[in-house]
Design a binder for these strands. Structure first.
Lengths: 346, 346
DNA sequence: TTGAAAGCGCTACCAC
DNA sequence: GTGGTAGCGCTTTCAA
């Protein structure tokens, strides 16, 4: 393990100064072509590798951005991360990853860690616990760092963001079922009041109203979003209330749980129409294949990158925060193909 | 956007020197408790946030490690990344992510970028293109950085690594089928000669030999690992050769493609037994559910972290490179439940 | 227990 | 077009 070679070594070897070497390496216009060539050649020969840390310390730019997500192994976030890395790499930026595991405490810790690492900006999707307490996010802005929120944001927090049109997503889902004459439609949402689900529920309720479908207190059920959570909801429903004609689950995993539990309860496959959100990889391959709403993670990552890149150019990046809203896309599959049952007459 | 507060500001405010502040903040034993308290209190009050860049430049340690993977949106890698981040965060390290998209060129670029960022170590899973040319990896070692390879490694490259027992994985898969009296078993592997598939194929062939099953030139077929690749292989087989009793696909996606194409060809679901590798999320939920081999991504990430942490303590980290080999786990499901057809008599 | 001062490797400003 | 040099914010000897 030999000592690292620096621009001083190159300068000494070539009998010029570090300023010249630095400028040559950065392709400054004020350096002659011959000097540049000499320096580059010597750098190659000496196996020089720049220390970006030193450059960053001096220049104040690290060319890394922090990405905060609840979990990198969730398909959707993995896809967004993939897209962010791809798009930002092209612009010379690196990605520092931080997972919150849905905890506000971790989220705060993440912001602090990334800030100390002097990242040029932070892209984040909020934890389920995040709501009132956003002091850590305000700190990011106060430090003059670029902040871009994606997918899970806060309603009254006026920062650049890329989200899905969640109201429309909920509306789209409900409307799809209503058009097929399903009337009793239950929505399974998580108890946490984060923006995206509030809006999906609202969109769903709006559709029910528009189509004159019944809304009662059990129309929206609050449960855990997971396979187990979906199963549990069906078990609960079997006990007390009459089964709905259709179920909209908060995500594809929950929808899968619903389908499986219905099967276990011995009900015919098309007794209850089921749909989810996210268009997970498995959703097209299960039986019945799952109708769902595509959330465009790839586009979301690309838009985050684009917004960030435009922010760094502005003098006042938060002046008119750009808020991109992506359109949800309905993906129709077998799980909602069944016939709606004729409405019950009293 | 106010000027950042540094230890100089704290020192001035408290009428002490930066050395004292630095030591107090780092909880040095040579500082009195009162001074520490004073400094910490003042730091809090002034909203001080340390600049890790400066500390790293001086100390030579960044407490970040680079993670290089083919793609972060592949389930398996996403799960490993998740695990690495979790385990390393606990030890105070951050994760710098780099995707190669299976390109050797990108992989080299990634190593260079991470090295320039002065990461303390690199965890990597090699691209499909990587084989002879490993100069970039040797550079990592020469720089005295910790290198840990996982999942996809090179046979004759003697560095710390965490892999699956791929020979056994292949053997396990074949044996599972052989025990059920399947005899004509085809293996679909990628054309690239990367270690993990070579060894899986060898394990598979060893099992065929051990059980006296036939091995001919079409026993191993080389194709693309993807849903489309799996479909294509089946189409090709339909044309020329008699269909095998069972197919072992290189991964779950390919296995899924095989299953779907068999269905499209109008064959009964249990005409050909199918299995894959990776235990993707969807594999348990498709019809028929897919028999596969679990690769333990979570454990793999944890082991990478553990090895790295032990390496940084050693004076000569590469002396006796630790090579962890994880055991593959057979996950039996419906896709291999069919009856083996009686052997054909000539 | 604290202070003074020398850098870590690079950039950028000011001279010439 | 090139040189000299002062830091960026922190750690870390060496002295006191």
């Amino acid at each position: 393990m030999k000592k690292k070679v620096t621009i001083y070594d190159i300068a000494r070897e070539l009998n010029i100064t570090v300023s010249t070497v630095s400028r040559a390496l950065n392709d400054s216009r004020s350096i002659s072509t011959e000097t540049k060539d000499q320096v580059r050649e010597m750098a190659r020969k000496m196996n020089y590798s720049p220390n970006k840390l030193a450059a960053s310390l001096k220049s104040g730019k690290t060319f890394t951005i922090g990405v905060i997500v609840p979990s990198a192994r969730v398909q959707f976030f993995a896809a967004v991360i993939h897209s962010i890395e791809l798009n930002l790499k092209a612009a010379g930026y690196g990605i520092l990853l931080y997972q919150t595991n849905e905890s506000l405490e971790n989220e705060k810790q993440g912001v602090q860690t990334l800030l100390e690492a002097q990242v040029d900006g932070i892209f984040a999707s909020l934890s389920l616990e995040t709501s009132e307490d956003i002091s850590h996010w305000e700190a990011v802005i106060k430090q003059g760092k670029a902040l871009v929120l994606f997918d899970r944001t806060l309603e009254n927090f006026n920062v650049p963001s890329v989200t899905l049109n969640d109201f429309k997503a909920g509306y789209l889902a409900a409307e799809h079922l209503l058009k097929k004459n399903f009337r009793n439609i239950t929505f399974i949402a998580p108890p946490q009041k984060i923006s995206i689900f509030k809006q999906r529920v609202e969109g769903y309720l709006a559709a029910l109203r528009d189509y004159g479908a019944p809304v009662h207190e059990n129309t929206v059920r609050y449960g855990t979003l997971s396979i187990e959570g979906g199963k549990a909801e069906i078990r609960n429903m079997m006990g007390v209330s009459p089964l709905p004609d259709a179920v909209i689950a908060g995500d594809d995993f929950t929808a899968l749980g619903v389908i499986r539990q219905l099967k276990e309860e011995g009900l015919p496959a098309d007794r209850v129409a089921v749909m989810g959100f996210a268009n997970e990889v498995f959703s097209g391959f299960i039986t019945p294949s799952l109708t769902t709403v595509e959330q465009q993670p790839h586009k979301m990552g690309a838009e985050c990158a684009r917004i960030f890149l435009s922010m760094v150019k502005k003098k006042n990046p938060y002046e008119n925060p750009e808020k991109v809203v992506l359109e949800p896309i309905l993906v129709e599959r077998e799980s909602t193909e069944g016939e709606a049952r004729p409405p019950e007459r009293p």
